[in-house]
């Protein structure tokens, strides 16, 4: 995709998201849709506050994402890297996801440090963990993709080194990025999660605390999405660049078979992680972990539950 089209696509997506939250009525509607999706009660008294918080988080995320995505697309467009095929396009989208996560994290930081009026407060008597907010399949999916990314890069280096398969000149910098980049992304996600979970949660009722958990879970899932995307992106680019340098086809050139096979394995793992993630309904994960049936306050926060 040409960079101007990437810019236009990102701007359109961002404009669409912002337009759906342009008025208080639209924000309330979006908040109710989100409440139904995660099975969390939304009382009239909390409606405006929750709608504002959700909209603030979404808008800050999409604005930061669009800014970073467009900036990346423009910089890559001017630097003339179109020769790398689809890589600049995906890098721009990766920047969009990164910006979204950063925007959400910024709002999370603001909300955890904002001054609040005096009054009754509630707090959890236990210490929640990253596993309470992000499903195992997403956390371990990111780690598995990072390991797979490093294995692909190392595998290509070993194959090229032994001379069994002719892969041409391997791009050293890209190989290094494919090994180290995803691992750093996963590490950054873990550190960001630890930082965010360590921040205070200010709530005056169990329902307000549950909504804070919902926003926190959303931010943490944005962050792990960046790690997964980075872990998937790096080896795909490496395989694409190495594959572009090969001539002929399989089986005449075994290198083409190796690259295509590795590409398919990566694609399968990525699709597998995606399907497994959708199957566990990740947006409801924090409800199952922190507000499951039987937990004090759980009935109070569920849609249709006792008040």
């Amino acid at each position: 995709m040409e960079q101007p089209f990437v810019v236009a696509f990102i701007v359109l997506v961002a404009a669409g998201v912002l337009a759906r939250r342009a008025t208080p009525a639209l924000r309330r509607s979006a908040a109710h849709a989100h409440a139904r999706r995660i099975d969390l009660r939304l009382e009239p008294a909390d409606e405006d506050a929750v709608a504002t918080r959700l909209a603030r988080r979404t808008c800050a995320g999409v604005l930061a994402g669009a800014a970073l995505g467009v900036l990346t697309a423009v910089v890559l467009g001017r630097s003339g890297v179109e020769d790398f095929g689809w890589s600049p396009t995906w890098l721009s989208f990766l920047a969009f996801f990164l910006g979204t996560a950063l925007g959400s994290a910024g709002v999370a930081w603001y909300e955890s440090s904002r001054p609040l009026a005096a009054g009754p407060r509630v707090a959890r008597a236990t210490v929640p963990s990253h596993a309470d907010y992000v499903p195992r399949v997403e956390r371990w999916g990111a780690r598995a993709m990072a390991v797979l990314s490093a294995l692909v890069a190392l595998g290509l280096v070993v194959l090229d080194g032994t001379g069994l398969v002719e892969l041409g000149d391997l791009p050293g910098a890209l190989v290094a990025v494919t090994i180290v980049g995803p691992a750093l992304a996963v590490l950054a996600d873990e550190l960001a999660a630890r930082w965010l979970i360590g921040r205070r949660q200010v709530a005056a009722s169990p329902l307000a605390l549950a909504w804070d958990d919902a926003l926190r879970a959303g931010t943490l899932r944005d962050s792990v999405t960046v790690a997964i995307c980075a872990s998937a992106f790096a080896p795909f680019v490496l395989l694409g660049v190495v594959g572009d340098g090969l001539e002929g086809g399989w089986p005449a050139n075994p290198g083409v078979g190796v690259i295509t096979g590795a590409f398919l394995v990566l694609l399968l793992v990525l699709v597998g992680v995606g399907i497994a993630s959708l199957a566990v309904q990740p947006e409801k994960h924090f409800r199952r972990r922190l507000w499951s049936v039987g937990t004090p306050g759980a009935a109070e926060v569920a849609i249709g539950g006792a008040r």
Binding site: A118, V122, A123, P206, P296
Partner: peptide
Amino acid sequence: MILAVDPAS
């Protein structure tokens, strides 16, 4: 496991 504190109590 929720703790609640009311400063007016």
